[in-house]
Nucleic acid binder design. Structure first.
Lengths: 358, 358
DNA sequence: TTGTAAGCGTTATCAC
DNA sequence: GTGATAACGCTTACAA
């Protein structure tokens, strides 16, 4: 293909659009030094010491000519893209945005970009997304969809791609993980519930293939045991999805059992708890007059609903930040052992939990 | 640097880690065809017709050998990264996640990845982030931080980087934009408020350098005018930030004026409206008994607060989807004229708006 | 302190 | 229908 300036360019249209970008060679000829010297100046390479005068001349030329490094070319040569991928189930799930923000902020400080991928809860999409990202597109991956046994984690180990799990961890901790301390959080919540005089406690739990769901149920049972209480089978419902509709259905199911309603329903998370509140309304049960409800997460506005929800607040941005730190460490020291980091949640005591007979 | 296999590799550690990845040349030697043929098969290039037998052989080898295209190398050659950037103020702002999801879903269907950047409301960070992304890292940008006069939009035009504005637009529509029809939404909301018998209407507006804020105020005034009403200066407060605290402060300011409270406060968005509800509580005013409140956005859980908030629901995922479509169009037809797409919001009538004297 | 040169892996074009 | 080749822009070991 011959251009108006007589050069040939075999690349497609899209490429030519930006083809007139200034590159290292342009700066080199403008300043009369070799391209390699320009490269050394521009990346502040400590190995090749450069005279101050040349460095200054090159930097000025780069600035006035509007030089921007071509990351594709640099990546091809260095094998690093200076970006990392984050895989989440659904960016609309309110737990993720604060985590992403923590990750992104930290990575940006270190000169990394963040690439986000949604899987839409599609287990197949997770592996595909990971493969996409691992294809020299990112230097490492933070996984927010981790299951107790996880295909993506296996893939990462096979391919040697640095990976950190955030929010959840695998059964055998094949990779580093940064999580909320769900078990401790639930034990604390049980302590508070019991301190409010409740003894007949019902639980809405979630599928046990996620570490969060498992740890919360475990913490709950440990908490109950510590007070000499147990969780009878007819006081436990397991939902498939942790959303409002599931919470409502689960609470309804509890009420349908041949027994009077429990004193309190402890839900696996806030959305499920809110669903349970709705179910109570439908049955003419007052919250917290007739029945108390607790959640987990402290998502936005749960302090504004009626009644304000008692819940555990995870420090999500901190969790995000630390997962980014872990990944950066792993880029520097690929052989380091996997580590589990637990971040403590914080109790938010609100009106949805009342004293018995209060 | 000499490896155990006698080859030399001048690249840094990080690069070597993945160095044993299978590449096109490996498949070529395994199948006994030329690399260019492998490339043609693997990209299903319609120009080079390939015999079925070779195609099949190559595809099988690629699969069993676990070939993954190196996107950095492909990008360098083609000038396209098959990814696009999205710039937002703050991923934690609840308007963005549904938009991002709409964008990401659509782009993934077309084989593009999505790169997200937060600016944290830092106007300088917007330009930096854009430059980062424009550096051959993405094929185009969707801008969610657009001001009526916007530096990033100017930059994109200068550099010839495809760009679409989402949620807001520039004064002179220098680039295509996909927005909510804020003016129409507000006119509809005014109609409903007036139909509920309200005449003394107060407004909490936002700075007029964003098209959303401006269009909402404009629509509001048009709506009032259509009913022969006007907006006296002492019934208007402008907040700096559209958050809860600002809404509370603004409503308090309204109440502090030497006049009895208005019948209704129409807020620029839901968070501001919720802040106004809090301010009413603090003054002992019942919502909606003494005063009605309306919002805009229909963010998650505003139907669960006390009282449930009357608001306009934007179709955010649709807005995201369409902005992605616009950008893809622009990649194909860079010379197309900028277009403005307006998406209609939908009224959510809830208890925070009551009939006068009801 | 700076120049030389050899690629990184892929793909568009041309030749056969 | 397939092979050969050069180039995309940058980086870095080595030579000078």
């Amino acid at each position: 293909m011959t251009q108006s300036d007589g050069t040939t360019d075999s690349r497609p249209r899209a490429a030519r659009r930006k083809a007139r970008r200034v590159k290292i060679a342009d700066i080199a000829s403008a300043t009369g030094v070799h391209p390699s010297t320009v490269s050394r100046v521009l990346r502040a390479d400590p190995r090749g010491r450069i005279s101050d005068s040349v460095a200054k001349r090159v930097r000025e030329a780069a600035k006035t000519m509007g030089y921007r490094r071509d990351v594709a070319a640099a990546s091809l040569r260095t094998g690093s893209t200076q970006s990392i991928g984050v895989i989440v189930h659904d960016i609309e799930d309110p737990v993720y945005p604060p985590i992403l923000r923590g990750i992104e902020k930290r990575l940006l400080e270190r000169g990394f970009m963040t690439v986000v991928g949604n899987t839409g809860y599609d287990i197949q999409a997770e592996a595909e997304m990971f493969e996409q990202m691992a294809t020299r597109m990112v230097d490492g991956v933070i996984l927010g969809t981790t299951r107790l046994r996880d295909r993506v984690v296996e893939l990462a180990l096979e391919l040697g791609v640095p990976l950190v799990s955030v929010l959840r961890n695998t059964e055998r901790l094949e990779c580093s993980a940064v999580v909320n301390d769900c078990a401790a959080g639930m034990r604390e919540l049980v302590d508070v519930v019991v301190a409010h005089g409740h003894r007949d406690i019902a639980v809405i739990a979630a599928p046990q293939d996620l570490s969060t769901a498992r740890d919360r149920l475990r913490g709950l049972q440990e908490g109950l045991a510590a007070h000499g209480l147990d969780l009878p089978p007819d006081r436990l419902v397991v939902v498939d999805r942790m959303d409002l509709a599931s919470g409502r259905a689960a609470a309804s199911a509890l009420f349908d059992r041949q027994r009077r309603p429990p004193q309190v329903i402890m839900a696996v998370n806030d959305l499920v708890a809110i669903g349970a509140i709705q179910a109570c309304r439908e049955r003419g049960l007052s919250v917290p007059g007739d029945i108390s409800i607790t959640g987990y997460n402290d998502i936005p506005l749960v302090d504004m609903i009626d009644p304000p929800l008692t819940t555990m607040a995870m420090n999500l941005s901190e969790i995000g930040r630390r997962s980014a730190d872990r990944l950066l460490e792993q880029l520097s020291f690929p052989e380091a052992k996997p580590q589990l980091t637990r971040v403590m949640p914080k109790l938010q005591l609100r009106a949805s939990l009342a004293k018995v007979g209060g």
